[in-house]
């Protein structure tokens, strides 16, 4: 068996570790056995389905299907991020634009640099990683923005009362929310390779690539991710923050009188 050929028997064998997780839950009475079993089953079904779809797309060798799949990823990522940032009004379109921008800019860059050919087997997995990371960063940034607007409503209103526009009053909040969205990826990039090998490098090595090539490929993706994620988080916030205010520069949810 080569590193990239795994049969159903091997997948079944890995269920032994799922059994360990279930055993730990039973031992500690954490009552997570059901959720662990559901998670393992869902992962099997979802990844198998995605695998079939990707196989069809690879065999068709037509970019229009690749873009369609990436568009589906952007849509699902948008809906997931919006669900996580429920306290933020009007977040759907800003998130859709943010994730589309992140995906397009990263894939465009790696193709333009000649790192990949514009083929399904490169665009689909890299697109998935970018959109997944952009989704998480945007959701974190928007959540933080929503929390900050609520927690600092008195300060925001006091600034508006001095003749500030909504943009001026929200500026420091956007700054701190952007930091929240980006810091996890920055920390992950700083420690990459020290604790765990990142995903693309692992996939490349398993597929038989030379370590040097696997490392360089991973670096290209990591650097592109930093740019894409910051672009996504900032875009999502820039298109959303105004929804917390009326056109007359008033907070839609003013602070309660004391």
């Amino acid at each position: 068996m080569s590193g990239s050929e795994v049969g159903l028997a091997e997948v079944a064998g890995a269920l032994a570790l799922v059994a360990v997780a279930i055993g730990v839950s039973v031992w500690e009475r954490a009552r997570l056995e059901g959720e662990i079993a559901v998670a393992a089953a869902r992962a099997f079904v979802q990844l198998t389905a995605v695998g079939f779809v990707i196989e069809l797309i690879f065999e068709s060798d037509r970019l229009v299907f690749v873009f369609a799949l990436i568009a589906v990823m952007v849509l699902v990522g948008t809906l997931t991020a919006r669900h996580r940032a429920r306290g933020v009004p009007g977040a759907f379109w800003p998130l859709l634009v943010a994730l589309s921008l992140a995906g397009a800019s990263t894939l465009g860059l790696v193709v333009a640099l000649g790192v990949f050919e514009p083929e399904a087997r490169f665009l689909v997995p890299v697109g998935g990683i970018v959109i997944g990371n952009a989704m998480t960063a945007s959701a974190v940034a928007l959540n933080r923005l929503g929390d900050e607007v609520a927690a600092r409503a008195r300060e925001i209103e006091a600034t508006l009362a001095l003749g500030a526009t909504a943009t001026e009053a929200a500026r420091t909040l956007i700054r701190s929310s952007l930091r929240s969205g980006m810091i996890p990826l920055i920390d992950q990039t700083k420690t990459t390779g020290l604790v765990a090998f990142p995903g693309i490098m692992v996939g490349s090595l398993l597929a038989g690539a030379e370590p040097v090539d696997a490392v360089r490929l991973q670096l290209v993706i990591l650097y592109a991710l930093l740019g894409a994620v910051s672009l996504a988080a900032l875009t999502a916030m820039a298109l959303t923050y105004r929804n917390f205010f009326t056109p007359a520069h008033q907070l839609r949810e003013p602070p309660e009188p004391q």
Binding site: R154, E155, A158, A161, L162, G163, T165, T172, A248, Q258
Partner: peptide
């Protein structure tokens, strides 16, 4: 008051809120 520029209005009619809300 809706006929006036809201920023000009707030500069002419200043508000001191009940609780302090200073910036860093």
């Amino acid at each position: 008051v809706r006929e006036r520029d809201v920023l000009d209005l707030r500069r002419e009619v200043g508000l001191v809120p009940q609780l302090p809300a200073l910036r860093e």
